[in-house]
Nucleic acid binder design. Structure first.
Lengths: 334, 334
DNA sequence: CTGTTAGCGCATTCAT
DNA sequence: ATGAATGCGCTAACAG
């Protein structure tokens, strides 16, 4: 039924080894025999079996990527960066959604390892001791992507979330705002949550602005939670003149909530966020945001992984990509 | 170095076959021996090698999915549906972006087949004779996902794009509009382009409205092309009172273009589209759209594929999922 | 219920 | 430059 390397060998009148050589582009084959083999391959419709090859060579040319949620545009963008570079280096990717759930993350890491991936790209929530444990059961290189562990034991590529948040809030402060609210993600989330919250606090503190607990709401990254948070802020006796949102989507919710309360953005309340997803420029007013280079984070982390897999020298195991503030229309003076 | 089934067998004092049985949950193992084996596995830190298993059993429990672009939110949503169901049936997915480019599509299909995937989910542009040819070189089941071939030779799940477009335009007509423009995708794209355009024309025709070529612009599915198209329509001597966009993103571009021209949506011009992505409810006015059940398309196609892979009986090889119109704020009377 | 024996399709020594 | 032989780690008959 299935045609194997053996069939090709017989058809071409050579040995299996020779067929294997031409299929793998080994230069040690006389052009004439190479030609014969190619013809036999063509005639028989031979297709190499990558599974057999993987077993024999112990390399599968596939990498595992665990991602929180591919339907989230931010991560989808990262995934595209990953796949483009993977493709460039002839790797395929097995994609697993793990929703930042620790159990699921560890489970998929294990099945990925069972599948003998040559490398692992991990995008998740907090990296716990159990994660490290799971990574340590294997020799395959792992790189954290848009994720980092505080101990910095694992190679990673990400932006500096604390600084990104800091920069966003600074922009508000520079515009004269003194009463600045924040719509945060859960503080359990190291990057999108905790770090951005820390950046917010530091910016306030360094500028002599007092931290007011009632000016912080925790959202779930979704549009609706942005409007809920904003409703709360607007109902305050002394409402903020600006709000910093941990993500675009919540920021957009906030903007619409402000508008629905017959207030103006940025006239009455300024809004800034970090992400800069495609949506940022697709709302009115267009959203001012600190841009995370999601595609690049994916691409760079995959590139790093290829080096690790080939045991090439890498000079930097923890790479922090630059972020930048994209001024649009949602921030004005106090 | 790596611990194999053989090591476990020795450690547990049983044969390889028995270890294989417990690992595969074969009921024909005495509980006591099963326990012994589990303990040995634990002690040795044994992890099954899925590649070896794949070679021996000729099943890899992985399916290939070729997708146009994972960073497009519409497809990302489908992908999530696919992965959720795949996961439920213990399959993993290898994801390949092919950008609706025929060459790339055929190339990735072949590498996926080399990797011995148990099934293939194909999401692409037009399904050509060459595609069919590629599919035919193998026994692994293929299902087209959000894609269909005119000959209906391959199982598929999708919505009826022609009808979806028809319904959208009908809604406009029922609201009294007579001068209705369309922002279409390229007519080379069978589903998003050609079929939707046909639906538009049929709706006009069935209602005695003449088709006017100057009322149709071809976009590239992006926001910017929506604003370009709309600019053109607004500059017309007799501008349309409503526009039907083939996708949400172009529709949003159109809305903003209208607003920037000091016109109102839907006061001056109504806008409707098909897609109903998350963005539809995140713009003002909120976009009225025909909803494609993207997640379901992914989930159902994966479910269908599992049946095909298990050679189970399937009663319907071509499934057309229902679409529905979601009334929001962008459509008003003529 | 358990063990023995063959391969699965290929890469990779080691010879020649 | 080419061939013969071995084994990668596991499943799947087949026996018993």
């Amino acid at each position: 039924m299935t045609v194997t390397i053996y069939d090709v060998a017989r058809e071409a009148g050579v040995s299996m080894a020779t067929v294997s050589r031409v299929v793998n582009n080994n230069p040690n084959v006389k052009p004439a025999t190479r030609k014969k083999v190619y013809e036999a391959i063509e005639r028989l419709g031979y297709r190499p079996n990558a599974v057999a090859r993987g077993l024999a060579s112990k390399r599968t040319t596939t990498v595992g990527v665990v991602i929180p949620d591919i339907s989230n545009s931010i991560f989808a963008e990262v995934a595209r960066g990953i796949e483009d570079i993977a493709n460039m280096y002839h790797y395929n990717i097995i994609l697993c959604n793990a929703d930042k759930k620790k159990d699921k993350e560890i489970r998929v890491v294990n099945t990925l390892l069972e599948k003998q991936v040559d490398g692992l790209l991990f995008m998740g929530g907090a990296v716990t001791e159990d994660h490290l444990q799971a990574f340590k059961t294997t020799n395959v290189p792992v790189v954290l992507c848009a994720t980092s562990d505080e101990n910095e034991q694992i190679p990673s590529v990400d932006i500096n979330h604390e600084e990104a948040a800091y920069d966003a809030v600074m922009k508000l402060i520079q515009n004269g705002h003194k009463r600045i609210a924040m719509i945060s993600g859960t503080l359990q989330d190291p990057a999108n949550g905790y770090a951005r919250f820390q950046g917010y606090k530091r910016a306030l503190q360094e500028n002599g602005l007092s931290y007011d607990e009632s000016l912080v709401r925790i959202g779930n990254y979704r549009y609706e939670s942005g409007v809920e948070a904003m409703k709360y802020f607007i109902a305050l006796d002394e409402r903020p003149t600006a709000v910093f949102s941990a993500t675009d989507e919540m920021a957009i919710g906030a903007i619409h909530c402000i508008q629905d309360s017959d207030l103006q953005v940025p006239g009455d309340i300024s809004v800034i966020s970090v992400d800069n997803s495609r949506m940022a420029s697709m709302v009115r007013p267009q959203l001012t945001a600190v841009a995370q280079p999601m595609y690049d984070i994916g691409a760079v982390s995959m590139r790093l992984l290829t080096k690790l897999m080939k045991k090439e020298h890498v000079e930097q195991y923890k790479v922090t990509l630059p972020h930048e503030i994209v001024m649009r229309q949602s921030v004005g003076g106090a």
